[in-house]
């Protein structure tokens, strides 16, 4: 079974973002970029499936600018066999990404597609579900456990009240939650080897997908800053402040 895993290049999760002075967007110049953390978990899960003999091949895919090939090389250093780069400098929203990934599914015919549940830049949490709908496939979102059994996959999902388990027919779409696995670090020899693994470059036109969106960004603002308050010296003072100043007790 072939496993397709989608990854996204995003701002490194440790970086504190700044809004541009003209409020047109977030300022990403000279900011450290990395693979979206949920996508790292997706790659790890795909590689583990291969190590268990469930997956025969792991193909990583991304949609984005030329620099996003760094994240594909990372995915291959972690164990993906080859990569597909749908190259575009346009800002591509979830719906267009899902359409492009649907094009990749049509060509590659994977048995399982794994994506991160959300990217930490737009915080959309949409692409996997949109891809599933467009491809006419079932979905196991927010997965904390994935168990492939023959023609089916059992997915344990993290839901608001606890856990839900569903069984899906394959092919299926899975999106990862934080506790699915703990991603490994790439080893230096694997990073060197990854440079030689095949990487196909495509364009949105190759899949007949227009990337324009009907949603426009009006402005981006920094949120209202919370002012740090006071330090209290004792539990008594805390209780007194909560009762008499904040009036929340």
């Amino acid at each position: 079974m072939k496993v397709l895993v989608a990854v996204k290049r995003v701002i490194d999760y440790n970086v504190k973002i700044r809004v541009k002075p003209d409020h047109s967007d977030v300022d990403l110049t000279n900011v450290k970029m990395a693979m979206n953390p949920f996508c790292e978990i997706a790659v790890e899960e795909a590689v583990r499936l291969k190590e268990k003999g469930v997956a025969s091949e792991v193909v990583a895919v991304t949609v984005g600018p030329k620099a996003a090939q760094e994240q594909l090389r990372t995915a291959m250093a972690l164990g993906a066999d080859r990569a597909i780069h749908v190259q575009t400098d346009d800002k591509v929203e979830s719906l267009a990404v899902a359409k492009l990934l649907k094009g990749v599914i049509d060509e590659e015919q994977p048995g399982l597609v794994i994506l991160g549940k959300q990217a930490i830049d737009t915080d959309n949490n949409q692409t996997g579900q949109m891809l599933a709908a467009l491809a006419g496939l079932p979905q196991g979102t927010f997965a904390s456990e994935v168990d492939v059994q023959g023609e089916k996959v059992a997915v344990t999902r993290e839901i608001d009240g606890g856990l839900q388990s569903v069984e899906l027919s394959l092919p299926a779409i899975v999106t990862t939650d934080l506790r699915l696995n703990e991603p490994r670090y790439a080893k230096l020899p694997d990073i060197m080897k990854a440079k030689k693994k095949p990487l196909d470059v495509k364009t949105p036109e190759d899949y007949g997908v227009a990337t324009a969106s009907k949603v426009s960004l009006v402005k981006v603002e920094a949120p209202a800053e919370r002012k740090g308050g006071v330090k209290v010296g004792s539990v008594d003072e805390l209780v007194d402040k909560l009762k008499n100043e904040a009036k929340v007790l």
């Binding site: 701002i11 809004v19 960004l217 920094a222 949120p223």
Partner: peptide
């Protein structure tokens, strides 16, 4: 909110 609430986007 975007970027973990570190920016607020107005979208149309």
């Amino acid at each position: 909110p975007i970027y973990a609430g570190n920016a607020i986007a107005t979208v149309k």
